[in-house]
Design a protein around this nucleic acid. Structure first.
Lengths: 246, 246
DNA sequence: TTTATAATACTTGTATACAAGTATCCTTGT
DNA sequence: ACAAGGATACTTGTATACAAGTATTATAAA
């Protein structure tokens, strides 16, 4: 059944095969992360069902999904909207950095020709998306780019973590790109360049280059704050590794 | 409604306040991980509903949960049991190592007196559990021990990852402890010792000690394989950090 | 005016009903 | 014997109904 409401924030084309529950989840996610639904709001299953013109079953499914993403909190009575604070966004990037560096280390030991080709293709698509000023398409391809890298190492649990992170990342990037495509057009060529560096890093299996592009990417989605904890953690672990190798 | 079936693998006391769906999820998880339900089996909502004597609603909920844990795969027709291969168990430990080292780095910058007290209490409970040969209680406290550490840093996304990992970890530890409490009794005192080392590491904020106990813990749940990728990854990141600090 | 209690209008969790789609198997035609 | 097609018995996704519990509010008593 179609969702009947004023205006959909989430690009419809992406959920052609999605169930009503997933649709609702995507739309609610966008509204919450964009701030259209304020943090602290209490969502009621019945009210949502009425708003989206579906029954409670898909609504329940949607709320479960959003709760697993830590966007809402399921309580005895009603679901409380949590939303994304600055801190949470920083946390998301902590996780992403953790995953992607882990993935890269695996990639170094692998044949990456096929992957590199796939990434190049996605990059071309992104260029086209810019050319036609399609922010949504650009954002979705951007997400796909990183997902493709993560998938390539065949680590089901890293993929699990990504699957949890992905929807929120997607929202953030979608919103960010929509904002910037109007005025800050040149930002996009820089994003493209960062991705090219990433591919180069994979092809040459160059750790430093990969780190560089990763940070450029992060900085590019507006979060700057330090990631000192992460760095310290890694440094510590490395010391441990060295010690173990003695 | 009560689940009516021959024999429950999951300790009932833990799910006093759980919904039927969660109960089913826990029980199915145990059966799958223990091998009682073989990998490759196709689960049908209707059949499960009949077996557990509940309606399809809680069954659907349970299947969603298990799918998010990568234990089953939801397909067009039926849910396919994936189970845990050696590789997957290794992957779980990759993730756990990733999380716990990150957490420890945060702990170093925090006041850990309160945490240390909590952990000591849990440790005492574990000792009592051993004294009375209660493998289940021991296992659950063990899980709680690690969860307490992770919770203490207030990082909602690390907690999210843990929440995903926890149920499977819990199953593994439950099964492992049940196996060993009969014959390999002295194993438990070693586990206790490892946890004591962990607390000491937190109190003294000693990275090397923490790593040591972490590895002892891992080795203790039978997985030995290398974690080379992780080590390499950390080493690489540390280099990056150094470079950045220059 | 304030407090206690009871009615009401919500809430969730579960059961059941139904529609639409898909695999299986059986029949039928060649 | 074998291929084509259709009936049948499954499947999931969604809607709806109901029970049990909780917050709120209104009413009544002190």
């Amino acid at each position: 059944m179609m969702i009947e409401t004023k205006e959909l924030l989430y690009p419809e084309k992406s959920l052609s095969k999605a169930s009503a529950g997933e649709r609702v989840a995507c739309e609610l996610r966008m509204r919450i992360i964009s701030g259209a639904i304020e943090s602290g709001t209490i969502l009621s299953e019945n009210k949502l069902a009425a708003d989206f013109a579906v029954s409670r079953s898909p609504i329940r499914e949607a709320l479960k999904i959003l709760a697993s993403e830590n966007i809402i909190r399921l309580e005895r009575m009603g679901a409380v909207v949590i939303g994304l604070t600055e801190k949470e966004i920083q946390e998301i990037y902590d996780v992403r950095l953790l995953i992607e560096t882990f993935v890269f280390e695996r990639l170094i030991k692998m044949e990456t020709k096929q992957l590199s080709r796939e990434l190049s293709k996605i990059l071309e698509m992104m260029k086209v998306a810019i050319k036609y000023r399609d922010a949504d398409d650009f954002a979705l391809q951007d997400v796909l780019f990183h997902e493709t890298i993560i998938r390539s190492i065949n680590h089901s649990h890293m993929l699990m973590i990504w699957d949890n992170l992905k929807p929120v990342m997607e929202c953030l990037i979608l919103l960010s790109m929509r904002m910037r495509i109007k005025e800050e057009y040149e930002d996009f060529t820089r994003v493209i360049r960062n991705h090219e560096i990433y591919i180069e890093a994979i092809e040459s299996k160059n750790r430093e280059l990969m780190l560089e592009s990763l940070h450029l990417n992060f900085d590019d989605v507006q979060v700057q704050g330090t990631v000192d904890d992460l760095w310290m953690s890694q440094q510590m672990l490395a010391k441990g590794a060295v010690q173990k190798n003695d």
